[in-house]
Amino acid sequence: MTIQSGSATLSLAPANPWTLVPALGNLDAYIAAVNRLPLLTYEQEQSYARQFKEHNDLDAAGRLVLSHLRLVVSIARQYLGYGLPHGDLIQEGNIGLMKAVKRFDPDQGVRLVSYAMHWIKAEIHEYILKNWRMVKVATTKAQRKLFFNLRSMKQGFKADAGATDAATYRDTLSEHEIDAVAAQLHVKREEVIEMETRMSGGDVLLDPAPSDDGEQAFGPIAYLADASHEPTALIESRQRDALATDGIAKALASLDERSRRIVQERWLKVNDDGTGGMTLHDLAAIYGVSAERIRQIEVAAMKKMKQALVKYA
């Protein structure tokens, strides 16, 4: 089958119509190629649609898709302001186009272009919502409407401010503008405020990766994590409690009476005024030895207790 388009003649006869579109890799070449593909007449569109619907003719479905690829490119260009790759937007739009062709009913009396626009935009919208941020900013129908309309409406408010004031126009909406957005989109003003807050914010990694110099970057995980209920911390806390009670008791029991009293008087007793226990000189006076001898006994007792605690742990 041959179709005349101006002075050029393009054949849609190949068994695989997708060969008419160049291989992916060069987006400009792809866009130029799909813009050269001829549009179908109403009669051709109806014929291909019926062949696909009644006989599952995939070649006819391919021709319907090919003739509307330029529509996807045009729609995808409208969403470049979201910072996502144009090629990815076109790819998602093509998926929507294929879904539209699959569900298109030629008996409804409408052109495929009108029917496909909804499916193309729906796929692009879903892609943007999933990839614009790490955390999805819109889930409900009202939130999705706000997401895709709030930015354009804010630009309209900025333009209305005048060329002189536009440069210094604030990014946040005024109370009057919030009410205007809510009334126009038929949503609550609280929802407008919440969506504006979501869109003005950014993604923050809970646990940032180490910097180039090996230092761990500070992140919210440092103050959001509850270390008191972390399993390792709980085990360590129980071990410390056990060592501070049963462990110390067993370690003291391994000492002779004099060494045990010296350790208890020096480290395990607190006076009523909050000060520590007896000094080396106080204990030296009780046992009739020098303060240095008391210190030597204390050091030896501490070593023996440490060995006992290691065995207990």
Score class of each variant (00 low, 15 high):
residue 129 L to D: 01
residue 125 H to D: 09
residue 54 E to R: 09
residue 220 P to S: 04
residue 78 Q to R: 09
residue 199 M to D: 07
residue 239 Q to F: 06
residue 60 A to Q: 03
residue 100 A to V: 06
residue 149 N to A: 06
residue 265 E to I: 01
residue 275 T to M: 07
residue 41 T to H: 09
residue 46 Q to Y: 05
residue 205 L to Y: 09
residue 262 I to Y: 05
residue 115 Y to Q: 08
residue 20 L to I: 02
residue 39 L to W: 03
residue 259 S to F: 00
residue 47 S to Q: 15
residue 251 A to N: 10
residue 116 A to M: 05
residue 53 K to I: 10
residue 112 L to V: 11
residue 282 D to I: 03
residue 82 Y to N: 00
residue 169 Y to C: 04
residue 131 N to W: 03
residue 157 F to Q: 09
residue 202 G to P: 01
residue 80 L to P: 00
residue 257 E to I: 10
residue 91 Q to L: 15
residue 76 A to S: 14
residue 106 P to V: 01
residue 279 T to M: 03
residue 90 I to W: 09
residue 186 H to R: 11
residue 272 D to P: 10
residue 220 P to T: 04
residue 311 K to R: 13
residue 285 A to D: 13
residue 86 H to D: 10
residue 68 H to G: 02
residue 266 R to I: 02
residue 36 R to F: 01
residue 168 T to I: 09
residue 156 G to K: 05
residue 145 K to T: 13
residue 198 R to I: 08
residue 118 H to M: 12
residue 256 D to E: 10
residue 107 D to R: 05
residue 223 Y to F: 15
residue 164 T to E: 14
residue 47 S to W: 12
residue 205 L to M: 14
residue 171 D to W: 09
residue 108 Q to E: 02
residue 226 D to P: 01
residue 57 D to Q: 02
residue 312 Y to F: 15
residue 166 A to K: 13
residue 267 W to C: 08
residue 265 E to D: 14
residue 235 I to C: 02
residue 32 A to Y: 07
residue 261 R to W: 00
residue 245 T to P: 10
residue 302 M to N: 03
residue 202 G to R: 11
residue 271 N to Q: 12
residue 79 Y to N: 02
residue 250 K to H: 14
residue 98 M to D: 03
residue 36 R to M: 06
residue 149 N to C: 04
residue 88 D to T: 03
residue 226 D to N: 10
residue 53 K to H: 08
residue 64 L to N: 01
residue 82 Y to G: 02
residue 171 D to L: 10
residue 258 R to L: 04
residue 203 D to W: 06
residue 312 Y to N: 09
residue 12 L to F: 10
residue 212 D to Y: 13
residue 158 K to L: 06
residue 78 Q to T: 09
residue 272 D to A: 14
residue 38 P to C: 13
residue 241 D to S: 13
residue 259 S to E: 12
residue 133 R to N: 05
residue 208 P to E: 08
residue 237 S to K: 15
residue 303 K to R: 12
residue 75 I to F: 03
residue 245 T to M: 12
residue 215 E to R: 06
residue 93 G to F: 02
residue 49 A to D: 02
residue 244 A to N: 14
residue 167 A to D: 04
residue 110 V to W: 01
residue 217 A to D: 05
residue 272 D to K: 15
residue 184 Q to T: 15
residue 152 S to M: 13
residue 70 R to Q: 12
residue 50 R to Y: 12
residue 256 D to F: 03
residue 8 A to F: 08
residue 101 V to D: 00
residue 157 F to I: 06
residue 56 N to K: 15
residue 60 A to Y: 04
residue 165 D to A: 14
residue 197 T to V: 11
residue 302 M to A: 15
residue 58 L to F: 15
residue 136 K to H: 00
residue 145 K to Q: 14
residue 279 T to L: 06
residue 217 A to W: 00
residue 52 F to N: 03
residue 35 N to K: 02
residue 135 V to P: 00
residue 228 S to N: 12
